[in-house]
């Protein structure tokens, strides 16, 4: 019997029929999706912090308005994703607890510091660029609420990347110091961005099942290669370079070859030892704790109004 429902389930997925929250699904599918979607939501929320760092110091009003809108979008993306995860039976507070206790992960990239204004450009171009590369295939996720949330996210994400490239382009045409600042930002953000696609395929044991369930459409290495190929061309427009001496076009493969990734650094950051892991979590926890009185007051106010209304009705 059990095998039968599982066969029906896989059959739907093979036919590209979306799975909706109340449909039967294997427990592992549910758990994997809760992890995937909540991690994604956490990444959007923590991802506001490195850029929030520069809102007050944006070089002009135009840039400040753009950066504010971008960070607000990220809050929105976090909220779309949390509510998609909630349809699978986990509560919002449970997810926050997992984030705040360090049990849940978020994208490692946000554990790097944003040292100069040029970092806003590098984050937009590279970090959002890598995120888009990951997210576009997820608009076809087999889980309906996640796929629909990703459609909305991807629509909004495009300006994030373009504004980042524009920042770098402006700096690259500026003074020597500005150009140097842009290059320095690329030097620091390139490798962490390449790592955003996750471990190599042969060290990513869940990939096969996730691809069978169509909650992952391409492997980490496939997406990473696509990202490198695109960036290696785009960087030429900036007149800057990517910090990889081994980066060169391979005619035979039709792809760029690139240098070895420092996986030790990747795992160190994943395990909590990146430059800003502690600071990011503490900022999130503080925001949550400091907001406690607001949540309580809003509840109390809603209660009071409900009581008043029922008095009127009586």
């Amino acid at each position: 019997m059990e095998k039968n429902v599982e066969e029906i389930f896989q059959d739907k997925i093979d036919k590209e029929i979306k799975i909706e929250p109340k449909d039967w699904m294997p427990d592992k599918y549910r758990q994997t999706l809760i992890r995937q979607i909540s991690q994604h939501a956490h990444s959007e929320i923590v991802g506001m912090l490195p850029e929030g760092n520069w809102i007050t110091r944006a070089p002009n009003l135009r840039r400040k308005a753009i950066l504010l809108a971008k960070v607000q979008d990220e809050a929105g993306h976090g909220l779309y994703l949390y509510s998609a995860a909630e349809t699978l039976g986990i509560t919002r507070d449970e997810m926050y607890d997992q984030l705040h206790s360090g049990k849940a992960k978020y994208s490692s990239i946000f554990n790097y510091p944003t040292l100069t204004w040029a970092d806003m450009g590098a984050i937009g171009w590279l970090v959002d660029g890598a995120a888009i590369m990951n997210q576009v295939p997820l608009t076809r996720s087999s889980f309906g609420p996640y796929a629909r949330a990703m459609v909305r996210v991807c629509k909004e994400e495009s300006f994030h990347q373009r504004q980042g490239f524009e920042i770098l382009l402006t700096l690259s045409k500026g003074t020597v110091a500005q150009k140097r600042m842009a290059q320095d930002a690329l030097n620091r953000w390139w490798w962490p961005s390449v790592m955003m696609f996750g471990p190599k395929d042969d060290e990513s044991p869940n990939t096969i099942q996730s691809m069978r369930w169509k909650i992952k459409r391409f492997t980490n290495d496939e997406l990473r290669q696509k990202f490198v190929d695109i960036c290696a061309e785009q960087v030429k427009i900036l007149g800057l370079t990517l910090p990889d001496n081994d980066l060169k076009w391979n005619e035979e493969k039709g792809h760029y070859d690139f240098g070895a990734i420092n996986w030790d650094e990747f795992w160190q950051v994943v395990q909590g030892n990146g430059p800003c892991n502690k600071q990011r979590l503490e900022t999130r926890k503080k925001a949550w704790d400091d907001g406690a009185w607001v949540r309580e007051a809003a509840n109390a106010y809603a209660e009071k109004r409900k009581r008043k209304q029922s008095l009127h009705a009586a």
Binding site: A69, Q72, D73, G76, L79, Y80, S83, A84, E86, R92, P145, R148, A149, E156, R295, A298, N299, Y301, A302, R305
Partner: peptide, 23 residues
């Protein structure tokens, strides 16, 4: 279009404005 948390109907509408109609 989706869901969200809010303490009361008015807050739900205001949050929906911010979360789902930014464009």
């Amino acid at each position: 279009v989706g869901s969200l948390h809010a303490a009361d109907p008015q807050m739900a509408i205001e949050n929906a404005r911010d979360v789902y109609t930014r464009r």
